[in-house]
Amino acid sequence: MAEPLIEVRDLGLSLPDMNAGPRLGRRPRLEILRGLSFDIPRRGVVGIVGESGSGKSTLGRCLVRLLEPSAGRILFDGHDITHMAPSELTGHRRDLQMVFQDPMSSLNPRHTILRLIAGPLKLHGVEQAEDKAREALDRVHLGRAFADRYPHQLSGGQRQRVGIARAIALGPRFILADEITSGLDVSTQAQIVALLEELVADMHLTLAFISHDLSLIRRLADTIIVLKAGEIVEQGRIADVFDAPTHPYTAALKAAIPLPTLDDAWLENAQEA
């Protein structure tokens, strides 16, 4: 088997604790992530699941190097990108893309859709950036009529399609999707998931899909990482982890999902946190 696209070894991140310690001098540090090790295989989809405060978004931001880890290392296609400066990262930026949770805040409200998608292409010296941007709009089934609109004129689902178009337009090898459906209605969510599956298959993408919803991850991912309080409590092939979770936290997460089926027992025997 070929070597993985992304290798993460002993990754850690700590930040100064803004709520504690003296106003001047060194603050105590908060450990957000601790000792994370995993691989993301080429053209694989990894699901990262956890509840609020688990560090899943922080981990995602380390993977695309929006944050600099304070321990361990991240190899992308064999290159150590753990501590690369912005100028060194430029060469890798086209390969490492991200779709954000809130498309309203991740799309600059003052730019048109066309500019939002074509801008990054121009930045990387791509010829005919605007044509390529229109093609990307087609790929996400939005249509070229949207090119001249502004983000606030779009619905939530349409905005998220723009977010995806912007990421795929650069022709990346890796895309990080951070809770990209959590603000959407279920019917819109289903459409976005279908689109994502289509793009992953057609464009041979490697995808990391961050979500609080195990059901979504079960559908999209090949492998899963379960995070709790900044540590991996369980990881493995998706079917294995679902069929026989080894960690009680994974089992609790699974049991807490209200499936749309009648089940009187689900609300009985209240267990305490």
Binding site: L253, A256, A273
Partner: peptide
């Protein structure tokens, strides 16, 4: 969060 949601429900 889902685990809290279940307890609240």
């Amino acid at each position: 969060d889902v685990t809290v949601q279940r307890q609240i429900l």
